[in-house]
Design a protein around this nucleic acid. Structure first.
Length: 472
RNA sequence: GCGCCCUUCGUCUAUCGGUUAGGACUCCAGAUUUUCAAUCUGGCAAGAGGGGUUCGACUCCCCUAGGGCGCGCCA
């Protein structure tokens, strides 16, 4: 039963860099909240910082969200394009006497702050133009527009995660709404955009918690409805240090390159700060059904690649073989390998069940699938080479014709080899390992019989011939 | 400096006054196996410190310590 006024959430990154894991989680929670309630998830690019915003960053953010599968509803809002509207709101506030012009120069304000710091005073705008007669304004001098914020009483943010957070209005100052060049500040733009976009729930990082109190001043001055707030604890790097561009934080696209599946990333991100009892493996469908704000934790969390990897291994095992095969093929193409034939692709798909059970990331999967594409004589890993001693080679030679006369499927091949082992009075491992080495060049691979079957008689026998010593 | 937020195993977390403080990842051991994984079994490992409130605190309150965020004509 859809609510008559569905909730509207938004993810509002500033395109000054790539989408990092913290932003990705914020986006996920907003998306999940909207999906859970049958609401709308919107995207807004906060590009009002003309100096630092780049098209490349916007593209990276869009691409990152797309990869994660967090598709937004309605059109993307570019904040800078809405500057005239933001300005109009500032003018409205000015006309209503809820904002005022401040003619203090940057140098003057710097001096003010320095003096406050010196005196051990709180650092904030002192309201020097708040009640001054506009007539005193220096003619033609540049000015900024500041909000006339409440000075007494308190502002309470009823945060869904942090609880009621109270701020004495005395600690809030008259922040800038419009810069001297007439452009709106972030504080104004956010409030106006959230209002105009019909945002009902503001779910964002808790670095914005104190901003919420400031933004509330504008909301109240305009008489607009107050959105529901939920401030999420920050994420930290593995070393516990702050997660930022300059502390080695990876862009979400880099996790993709590292070989993680988007569904694994979603599950991992979900558990970073949100819980549902003891549940760990949570599908996206389940997440949508379960997600809520009540179970968001209040403390910051560290990123742990090991856990992501473990989840990734789980999702890979569940993933469709054809999908994984095509991902591997894509990775090989990226690495400059020659395109695989349709036959090779089919072979890869057939080998996938054995391959995916052994890999934790897509990159590992690509590596372990390498033997399928190797050209004879295949390269041997040192250990595999060492294993293929004369004895092992002779055994391969003895086994060769037994295999050649067997039906070519894993079951028959296994039966043939077991019979061979029986006859020779050796252990299965004595022949299985050399066979693996000859076939794959490695010490580990999917079950050898599957490898034989997948490779096909011609290629498999040829690889054995490359290593065998004639048996007497 | 001022304000706000946070604090359970190494990490992510459960617990909503009464539990031998549970689960997951990591690590270790064992079982299984042609290898490696997977799987199964078992193990190591936690309430920052100090005061209260209470018959009883991880849980509620206060203080301290530590960490984070904000205090910009950045977002």
């Amino acid at each position: 039963m859809a609510s008559p006024t569905p909730c509207v959430t938004r993810f509002a990154p500033s395109p000054t860099g790539f989408l990092h894991i913290g932003g990705a989680r914020t986006a996920l929670f907003n998306w999940l909240y909207a999906r859970h309630h049958g609401g709308i998830f919107r995207l807004r690019i906060e590009d009002t910082d003309r100096e630092r915003s780049t098209e490349a960053a916007i593209a990276a953010i869009l691409q990152g969200l797309d990869w994660l599968g967090l598709h937004h509803d309605a059109e993307v809002v570019h904040q800078f394009a809405r500057a005239p509207r933001h300005r109009a709101v500032a003018d409205e506030l000015l006309a209503a006497g809820k904002a005022y012009r401040c003619y203090a120069s940057a140098a003057e304000l710097d001096a003010m702050r320095a003096a406050q710091k010196e005196a051990g005073q709180p650092i904030r705008y002192d309201g020097r133009w708040r009640d001054r007669d506009p007539a005193e304004a220096p003619a033609g001098a540049p000015f900024v527009v500041r909000i006339k914020a409440a000075q007494t009483g308190e502002t309470i943010i009823a945060d869904q995660v942090q609880g009621d957070v109270r701020f004495a209005n005395a600690v809030l100052d008259d922040f800038v709404l419009l810069r001297s060049d007439g452009t709106p500040t972030y504080m104004l733009s956010v409030v106006v955009d959230d209002h105009d976009m019909g945002i009902t729930h503001v779910i964002r990082g808790d670095d914005h918690l104190t901003n919420a109190a400031r933004q509330r001043q504008i909301i109240d001055a305009m008489g607009w409805p107050v959105p529901v707030y939920a401030h999420l604890p920050m994420l930290h790097g593995e070393d516990g240090a702050k997660l930022s561009k300059r502390h080695g934080a990876l862009g979400i696209h880099e996790y993709e390159a590292l070989g993680y599946l988007p569904e694994a990333m979603r599950n991992y991100l979900l558990r970073l700060g949100w819980s549902h009892g003891d549940d760990e493996v949570i599908s996206t469908e389940q997440a949508i059904a379960w997600f809520n704000l009540e179970n968001v934790g209040r403390s910051p969390a560290r990123v742990d690649l090991k856990k992501l990897e473990s989840l990734n291994a789980h999702y890979m095992r569940e993933a469709d073989d054809t999908r994984l095969a095509d991902i591997v093929l894509g990775l090989r193409a990226q690495a400059g390998e020659t395109p695989a034939s349709e036959a090779a692709r089919a072979m890869l798909i057939r080998a996938m069940p054995g391959l995916k059970a052994r890999a934790r990331t897509l990159t590992e999967l690509r590596e372990s699938a390498g033997f399928l594409f190797a050209v004879r004589p295949i390269t041997l890993e040192p250990k595999a080479d060492a294993l293929l001693n004369p004895t092992a080679r002779e055994r391969l030679g003895a086994l060769r014709d037994t295999l050649a006369s067997s039906d070519w499927n894993a079951e028959s091949l296994e039966a043939a080899v077991r019979a061979f082992v029986e006859r020779e009075g050796i252990k299965l491992g004595d022949i299985a390992q050399p066979l693996r080495a000859a076939l794959t060049g490695r010490m580990t691979s999917p079950p050898v019989f599957d490898v034989l079957a997948v490779l096909g008689p011609e290629e498999a026998l040829a690889r054995i011939d490359d290593r065998r010593l004639p048996s007497e």
